[in-house]
Design a protein around this nucleic acid. Structure first.
Length: 511
RNA sequence: GCCCCCAUCGUCUAGAGGCCUAGGACGCCACCCUUUCAAGGUGGAGAUCAGGGGUUCGAAUCCCCUUGGGGGCACCA
């Protein structure tokens, strides 16, 4: 096997992401897709999407849709393969769904069978299970014992006559398989540690992963296989198959794994692994992709916030980390905030709409805000959204008909109910005196500050009481912008409601 | 159990023999700004570079061992 050094040209650079539609798009798959995409785009190569759907029992069109939608959402465009779930695919090496390529695996298996590089195995699941148990008992690595490796034609016929349907196993043989991994350097593995001859075709004739991946990578002229480190130990199997099939092996690059906080391989049990979950929570794709790119790769400078286009320009496999990386959600949220703050106002409004609709659906707001409602709010919300999904708790109170306010919250820490009631009553008078025309932040603040001064109240305390009355919360966007957004009528209504609520808080001293 | 891979602040990382009394970012803690919450600014705590041997005038950087962690060993992908 001769490895051509990587020339600067794009000639022949073909990489692929090959997800299996047996679950929603996984963060790890997304990261692998991203790195393949970056590698291809940086070098002007071709990025291919292939669906590995041979596990029919677990595959579904719903997952296929989730995966394709997720990759599109992240902005990772591909040059060959299907674009929509269940839809047609494009590219000169199709079909790109493995279940539509069964004849090719069958043909490849026949070729190996004809050359005796593979053979039918009639061992029953029970026999295999017993072998496994036996190996375990003597504390040895489980491996296929080779019971059917040297069956003669007569014996095969006899077993077939018993009604046994054979699987097809590939002969692993002896020797050392070595390859130069683009991120790990030279890796050598003795074939004795591969677990024996492995199955390439099930008894029902459908092919298994290790086989399909090689047949397809060869057929699709894949030049570089960039995938998770969990495949490193399996790579010799693939190299052996390429050789047996008479095909040149691609170059390999094994990426570090994305980890749970406890440093085990990221899993659904311990982490949120579905990309769609992050989308639903209001992470923006710019941030998600930026974050993923920095999990295992760094530009070598202190730049962190980078758009995909810049990452494409700067990406190099040589700068990929070897050690696994913990998925740090806090850092993701920070990065998401960075990207939200960089959004144009109209763009932010656009992206917020589905989240506001969700609030409406859930009954947490009574009216869907329109662009006119939102536009003036952008400056105050933009720097307060860690995720788009928090929009409801941030400004939901503006679009609620009857605000439920916890009466005890109305009373500032240093005040009692009576003072609060008195203060809000005074504020009400000021506000109603201003009228509709002057209802702007600049007009509201001075008289209310003056009121505080005149009565000897700390402005902060007074503002807090008003804030809770108007929003139901102690933490909210800037008070006067909030009141303006609420409008004079509803501001007065809420002050009235708060004043009334305070009457029920308890006996007020001095009355 | 066997094989393979990995190892710099809690986390993501910079570092490719002297520029390192190890830099940045997240998180954390102060302070500033400030009507709350954020955002932003400034500063701080935080890594004897897993440990031990080498090599070298000199090692976070090279080699070996140990330890630790992870991954793989299916008629899953």
């Amino acid at each position: 096997m001769t490895d051509e050094p990587l020339s600067g040209s794009a000639a022949g650079i073909r990489v692929r992401i090959a997800p299996s539609p047996t679950g929603p798009l996984h963060v790890g798959t997304a990261r692998t897709a991203l790195f393949n995409y970056l590698f291809a785009r940086h070098l002007g190569g071709t990025f291919i999407l292939r669906l590995e759907d041979t596990d029919v029992a677990r595959s579904s069109i719903a997952y296929e849709k989730d995966i394709l939608d997720g990759l599109h959402w992240l902005g990772l465009s591909w040059d060959e393969g299907p674009d929509v779930a269940g839809g047609p695919d494009r590219g000169p090496y199709g079909p790109y769904r493995q279940m539509q390529r069964l004849d090719r695996y069958r043909a490849a298996a026949d070729q190996l069978l004809a050359q005796d590089r593979a053979y039918p195995c009639f061992c029953s699941p029970e026999e295999l299970e017993a072998d496994r148990k036996a190996a375990e008992a003597v504390r040895e690595a489980p491996r296929y014992v080779g019971r059917c490796a040297s069956l003669g034609q007569a014996e095969r016929s006899a077993r077939a006559a018993e009604g046994r349907r054979p699987v097809i196993r590939f002969r692993v043989g002896e020797g050392i398989v070595a390859f130069d991994d683009l991120v790990r350097g030279r890796v050598e593995i003795d074939t004795a540690n591969l677990g024996g001859d492995f199955v390439i075709l099930r008894a029902d004739g459908t092919p298994l992963y290790h086989f399909t991946v090689v047949v397809d990578d060869a057929a699709m002229r894949i030049s570089h296989v960039i995938r998770g480190e969990d495949h490193l130990s399996n790579t010799p199997k693939h190299i052996l198959l390429f050789g047996a099939l008479g095909e040149p092996a691609p170059r390999f690059a094994h990426l570090p794994l994305i980890l749970n906080p406890d440093r085990s391989k990221m899993s659904k049990r311990k982490s949120q692994t579905a990309v769609s979950d992050y989308q639903e929570q209001g992470f923006v794709p710019e941030a998600f992709v930026n974050f993923l790119a920095l999990l295992g790769w760094s530009p070598g400078t202190e730049d962190e916030i980078m758009p995909l286009s810049e990452i494409e320009e700067r990406f190099e496999l040589e700068r990929v980390q070897k050690g696994g990386a913990v998925f740090d959600r806090e850092r993701l949220e920070w990065m998401n905030g960075q990207w939200i703050r960089r959004l144009e106002a109209e763009e932010l409004i656009e992206r917020l709409r589905p989240f506001l609709e969700a609030e409406l659906q859930a009954g947490r707001i009574d009216r869907m805000p329109d662009d006119e409602d939102l536009r003036p709010l952008v400056p105050v919300i933009q720097e307060r959204l860690p995720t788009l999904g928090t929009i409801g708790e941030l400004i939901g109170f503006l679009f609620v008909d009857d605000l439920a306010v916890e009466p005890s919250l109305l009373v500032p820490k240093r005040w009692d109910a009576a003072t609060t009631r008195e203060a809000l009553t005074a504020v009400r008078a000021v506000v109603s005196g201003l009228g509709t025309v002057s209802f702007e932040a600049d007009e509201l603040e001075p008289p209310i500050r003056a009121l505080a001064e005149e009565r000897g109240w700390k402005a902060g305390d007074l503002f807090m009481a008003i804030r809770v009355a108007a929003t139901g919360r102690t933490a909210a966007p800037p008070l006067f912008d909030t009141l303006v957004a609420l409008g004079p009528a509803r501001t007065l209504d809420r002050l009235d409601a708060a004043i009334a609520a305070l009457a029920t808080v308890g006996p007020t001293p001095g009355e």
